[in-house]
Design a protein around this nucleic acid. Structure first.
Lengths: 162, 162
DNA sequence: AAACTATAGTTGTCAAGGCAAATATGTCTG
DNA sequence: CAGACATATTTGCCTTGACAACTATAGTTT
């Protein structure tokens, strides 16, 4: 069972060892990393100084309208503490604002500023559209739907485990 | 009920969100996060003090046999500096060892110890098998193959972009 | 062989995210 | 109503991973 094959597997490995095809988990990791990288590259090309996380926050803030910080955090799957700090940055950039929540004095109301809306609609959203189009261009729309469906099923299978 | 503070922090799947189904990128993120969480939970249940990254390093070290640190880093898609520190930890735990490479005095030869091999074969590998089985249990083997295929195609589409 | 250039590994630095504690406020129960 | 408990946000602490600088060694060129 020991790795007693021919000596010197040591130099020059090209990404993609034929003997060990990437597992599902590895593939997910790689695809996700590639998407993040591509989106950030597109954002930089538009001279937008936004991390992928910040991009997601803008996206959700635009989708959801006025929400609390916690709701936003859940929407982008980010820890509450991390969200506070990202909101600090985005507020400093003038892209969103925190206002007190009318009914709940613990909570905030997070809202895109007009600048934030403009950045989203005129630049940032297009960046992700380009990347996602590139990502899915090798699949028919049927296949795209299937991929989506499979991932959703994998997710429920994992979450329903207990 | 008393004193029960934190349950699963960010794993709420907000059911009331029909207007904005998760995008492909978001789905990938969620599935990956769920797999990482599940594998780490399984590892902890076996009293293995291993992070997901360390789990991956063991896996690849077992798959590849004796390799250089750089090759291992590429195999798990980890930065070289981060790899150094993970190797420090795994060596301290007695799971692998660094020996000088015979032909290249810059390089190392990373090898699982017998303890490392035992941990992998008797515990750690089974953890991921359980998780991956759970993840894929809702799909037929045809569908599993298709999912794998689609992800591979998405990956090449993104990488061949330039 | 000397001079470049590339590569392996280590280390320092930094930003990001997770977790826990703290604070303020809301909600429920007896 | 009082007290217990839950929730929203912030902050501190810690770990991780990316990136860059550095050292040592290989390989290549002249």
């Amino acid at each position: 069972m020991r790795g007693m094959k021919t000596e010197a597997p040591l130099l020059h490995s090209t990404p993609g060892d034929p003997a060990h095809p990437p597992s599902l988990g590895m593939l997910l990791n790689m695809v996700r990393a590639e998407i993040v990288r591509a989106v950030e590259a597109e954002l930089a090309k538009q001279d937008l100084d936004l991390s992928f996380t910040q991009f997601l926050i803008l996206k959700k803030a635009h989708q959801l309208g006025a929400v609390s910080a916690t709701e936003l955090a859940r929407a982008v799957e980010l820890d509450g503490g991390a969200m506070t700090r990202q909101l600090d940055q985005l507020e400093r950039k003038g892209l969103l604002r925190r206002t007190p929540h009318a009914q709940d004095r613990r909570a905030l109301r997070i809202e895109l500023t007009s600048a934030g809306n403009a950045v989203w609609q005129n630049s940032a959203s297009l960046c992700s559209e380009r990347v996602m189009a590139a990502a899915q261009r090798s699949m028919t729309s049927t296949e795209q739907a299937r991929l989506h469906d499979y991932l959703g099923r994998v997710l429920s299978a994992l979450r329903d485990k207990n």
